[in-house]
């Protein structure tokens, strides 16, 4: 029971609905992006996002059901992202999901957006090898987690200041590359030299054993961002492509180096990359290298599944339903929801 899950994702600026069977077979995954509506403001405007979600909800829902070739009566459970994210956006998806669960008389399942990003990697490779080191990187989060089982996460470390995606956005804005910054830097870096400038890598070049435990798997990107800004100011002739490529390399270096340390220290059997920044080509390339070199299985979401989508929500919802059962109908949105961690 509960095998065909309808997922709804509205945590930020994507309205998405998907139909997924047993957390592995994606029958449909429709995403309507508002990126163009926010681009003019250089970032997501919450009220504009909330309005757009209301407008897009029914068309996206209709498309997802039509493409899956199912009707409401075929759906076994409805899952929605309840956090973290923008509260006014989250509430649109949560409200709609609870309404559909009532109408179709099926369970409603609350899904954590961060956990959903993890499950994007397992959509195509459902046979987990545990424990898994998970690197979760997005505009709002950068963390290394040890996944011991479904819903069982231990935090290894997270960012002390900016998230990696946030650093990409800030540097891209400074370099005049526009919004969103991640894809812009990724594209331009292809024409640049990653070793052109040696930008700082905080807590990365040391021997991991000499770092205090709370810093070993921690990240920091604000010093890097400042170094790039200062460098461009003092050397205005520097080729923007070289600056972008060198900056990207410094971020990726920090991310994959610490992933390698975590794999080696925990004896993990696999490593999983998740979050919007998982679409970055250099990060994907070097993450795969680390997995090959350490002999662990790599779990990478397809590019389409890196950005926010509802297939990952439906997949995470299927697992949550199996482990915890339905969520209550008085579930609200929690903009600051964290990954449920073991202590």
């Amino acid at each position: 029971m509960g095998d065909l899950v309808l997922g709804i994702e509205t945590s930020c600026d994507e309205t998405a609905v998907a139909v997924v069977e047993r957390a592995t077979i994606v029958w449909s995954s429709i995403v309507s992006s508002q990126v163009e509506q926010h681009a003019v403001f250089g970032g997501v405007v919450p009220e504009i996002a909330g309005r757009a979600h209301v407008q897009e909800l029914v068309p996206v829902l209709a498309d997802a059901l039509a493409e899956a070739g199912v009707s409401g009566g075929d759906i076994d459970a409805v899952a929605a992202t309840t956090g973290p994210g923008l509260v006014g956006s989250l509430l649109v998806g949560v409200s709609a999901a609870k309404a559909l669960a009532l109408v179709w008389d099926v369970p409603f399942v609350a899904v954590n957006h961060l956990e959903a990003h993890l499950y994007a990697s397992f959509l195509e490779e459902p046979d987990l090898e545990l424990p898994l080191v998970v690197l979760l990187v997005s505009g709002g989060h950068t963390m290394l987690v040890l996944m011991e089982g479904h819903g069982r996460y231990r935090l290894l470390g997270s960012t002390l200041d900016d998230a990696a995606g946030e650093a990409f956005d800030k540097v891209a804005r400074y370099l005049g590359l526009g919004y969103p910054g991640g894809p812009a830097i990724d594209a331009l870096s292809g024409d640049g030299e990653p070793a052109a400038f040696d930008y700082p890598r905080s807590m990365v070049r040391e021997n991991p054993d000499t770092l205090p435990e709370d810093r070993r798997y921690a990240f920091s990107f604000s010093g890097l961002k400042t170094a790039v800004v200062n460098h461009v100011r003092s050397d205005p002739g520097a080729a923007t492509a070289d600056v972008a490529a060198s900056f990207q390399e410094a971020v990726v270096d920090a991310l994959v180096t610490k992933t390698r340390w975590a794999i080696e220290a925990t004896g993990a059997r696999g490593a999983c990359l998740g979050g919007g920044v998982a679409a970055n080509s250099r990060l994907r390339e070097r993450f795969l290298d680390v997995c090959t070199e350490t002999g662990v299985r790599a779990f990478l979401p397809s590019r389409a599944m890196c950005t926010d989508n509802a297939a990952m929500v439906a997949a995470a919802g299927w697992w949550r339903l199996r482990s915890d059962g339905p969520s209550p109908l008085d579930t609200g949105a929690d903009p600051n929801l964290g990954l449920p961690l073991l202590s």
Partner: peptide, 17 residues
């Protein structure tokens, strides 16, 4: 705004469903 959207999102989903 936020309360309004909760009611409207619920209502359109109910009607569509």
């Amino acid at each position: 705004f936020t309360g309004l959207r909760v009611g409207i999102a619920t209502a359109v989903a109910m009607a569509y469903g």
